[in-house]
Design a protein around this nucleic acid. Structure first.
Length: 107
DNA sequence: CAAGTGACAATAA
DNA sequence: TTTATTGCCACTT
């Protein structure tokens, strides 16, 4: 859409993640058309210039694992938020991308 | 104003 | 199979 910035596309895509679903940095990078910029997708959320409109907790690693640090205010907090939205967890730190991967049908 | 840094993922060896 | 390196934009200081 009107946004010509890479970050803007990332924010717009992350905001489109439906409740109960999660997306990976790499998938978002592909959705914006730049599979090699997955690194900056994470940085875009880290910078978080639009707090409140960017559900960073719905974004996880390609492995389905959440960040190892306190990026979301606490990995356990992120897990609680996702569980509250209906996301299925395989482990305390890994999300069941098999069921909650978004968008559905990317293959 | 310029340089450095940063929540990852994919490919090569 | 696993480990290491590369890629690359915007934001921070």
């Amino acid at each position: 859409m009107g946004s010509d910035g890479f970050f803007e596309r990332v924010y717009d895509t992350v905001q489109q993640i439906p409740c109960g679903m999660v997306a990976t940095y790499g998938q978002i990078a592909r959705l914006v058309g730049e599979p090699r910029k997955a690194r900056y997708v994470g940085f875009a959320l880290h910078s978080n210039p639009r707090p409140g409109i960017i559900p960073c907790h719905r974004v996880v690693f390609a492995d389905g694992s959440t960040c190892t640090g306190f990026a979301f205010g606490g990995p356990e907090v992120q897990r609680a938020l996702l569980l509250d939205e209906g996301v299925i967890f395989r482990d305390n730190t890994h999300v069941d991308l098999t069921r909650c991967r978004w968008p559905a049908g990317i293959e």
